[in-house]
Write a protein that binds this DNA or RNA. Sequence first.
DNA 1: GCAAATTAATGATTTATTCAAG
DNA 2: CTTGAATAAATCATTAATTTGC
Lengths: 124, 124
Amino acid sequence: MKVHQLALGGLKDQQEPPSLTLACKSFISGANHNVQVGTRWNPTEDQITILEALYKGGMHTPNATEIERITIDLSKYGRIEGKNVFYWFQNHKARERQRQKRNLNFVDACLRLNGEATMAKVAK
Amino acid sequence: MKVHQLALGGLKDQQEPPSLTLACKSFISGANHNVQVGTRWNPTEDQITILEALYKGGMHTPNATEIERITIDLSKYGRIEGKNVFYWFQNHKARERQRQKRNLNFVDACLRLNGEATMAKVAK
DNA sequence: GCAAATTAATGATTTATTCAAG
DNA sequence: CTTGAATAAATCATTAATTTGC
């Protein structure tokens, strides 16, 4: 059983989407970015900016102390927990790898398509 | 323009087939960045798949006979030499070990930080 | 211009590995 | 040989973008 299902276990119509109108959603997000419309963390722009800066600065797998520090710092910009930071780095690293792999596959396909002659030309 | 930018722009998200020839020409005539065709071994996807399958199958340090056999088999998928196979296994094993040591106690520390059921599941 | 429908991104979980205790 | 520690890969689920019909 999923955790969020556990948490919402008592509610009858949990499977039905809230079906808020866009106007309502934009009103809520415009009025207060921290209103909890759903259950999952939704990072603010500032939080993402800082997280990406940290990642690009070389922090790919922060340790517990670093996660704690980041969480405290980013709390200034919106609701956030340590596990969110943990998951963010996990996902970001994994998806960076995915993108890299896709690009390598792409280059590989190009080289195969063009064949040995072109490869030799590239190699000079 | 960089190849990976071409790839991302054309592929969008690995779904639709990009204009391969155009991108390839752009790649070959333009920015040749770090793909060293002809100098160092560039394993193909098929070669990596097979090598990883062998590793996962329990072959962590193949002997000379096994290396010879693997080299011959993998030659079907691209240029490869025995030393490439030897180095691949050596590096693969070493890097797995490195990763293990570098992230020692990581999730455990996160658990102590958060103390939540979801994190316990992550650590499981 | 607006929401319903659909698609793309991404947060959260689960699964399958790795090395090396015991 | 088995198992503990700790993921990273694969997958699931939900949110945001966007497309579409009106």
